[in-house]
């Protein structure tokens, strides 16, 4: 464990807390893409299959349970909570996210470390997470006003993977010198997808203006 990875995990956890706070406090999920949240449930379930079979550390196990639990809670809120589900606007959540599953799965069948169920699904989860934010970014571009909590949620969700890139640099040059091409490339693609969001987010923060993404 190094500081970059710990900071990354904490930023990731914080983004989820910000989202749960927004939904629970405002009883509204306006501006949030249910499709991105559903993709994240699939990401966590396929990545943490070893939750009960491989013990890495207490921290690792606890965080996996927290990520699976909170992602399920968010999807539950948006689908079934009597008040929150009324605020979900499926007409603006238009991205065909199921079209992301097959290409990521096929790519994982072709490009992986070991051809085992665990490893192919773990690889699939990395490819899927790289593109899981697309429905949310598309929704933000179409929504007129982005509320602060939603903007902060997306910012921290993007920042966490950027911190993981620093963690990979640190591990490669200062620790085990092992190339991890699959997480590295997936993580870079994931972080790059946030590039324009980061630009407009920081610009709006500097100019103290409302965050607005160009359509």
């Amino acid at each position: 464990m190094n500081l970059f990875r710990l900071a990354g995990d904490m930023t990731h956890l914080f983004s989820i807390i910000v989202l749960l706070l927004k939904i629970h406090a405002t009883k509204s999920c306006s501006g949030i893409s249910l499709k991105t949240q559903e993709l994240y449930v699939i990401v966590f379930l396929t990545r943490y299959l070893d939750l009960f079979t491989r013990f890495v550390s207490l921290y690792n196990t606890v965080m996996k349970i927290v990520f699976i639990g909170t992602s399920f809670a968010i999807v539950w809120y948006m689908r079934y909570h009597k008040v929150v589900k009324q605020t979900y606007n499926k007409d603006e959540d238009t991205f065909k996210h199921y079209f992301l599953l097959l290409p990521c799965f096929v790519l994982a069948l072709l490009l992986h470390n070991e051809f085992t169920t665990m490893d192919v699904l773990w690889t699939f989860s990395l490819y899927l997470e790289a593109v899981a934010i697309l429905p949310q970014l598309v929704l933000l571009q179409q929504s007129r006003n982005i509320d602060n909590l939603t903007g902060n949620y997306v910012f921290f969700l993007g920042a966490y993977r950027g911190l993981y890139v620093l963690n990979w640099i640190y591990r490669y040059f200062l620790q085990d010198h092992r190339a991890r091409w699959i997480p590295w490339i997936s993580g870079l693609v994931q972080t790059a997808l946030y590039a324009d969001f980061f630009y407009y987010y920081i610009l709006s923060w500097k100019k103290h203006e409302k965050l607005k993404l160009p359509a």
């Binding site: 990545r47 491989r54 890495v56 550390s57 965080m63 990520f67 993981y164 085990d176 092992r178 997480p183």
Partner: peptide, 10 residues
């Protein structure tokens, strides 16, 4: 050097 455990990251 000791091989780090596989998939030790979240």
């Amino acid at each position: 050097n000791r091989q780090p455990p596989k998939h030790d990251e979240l």
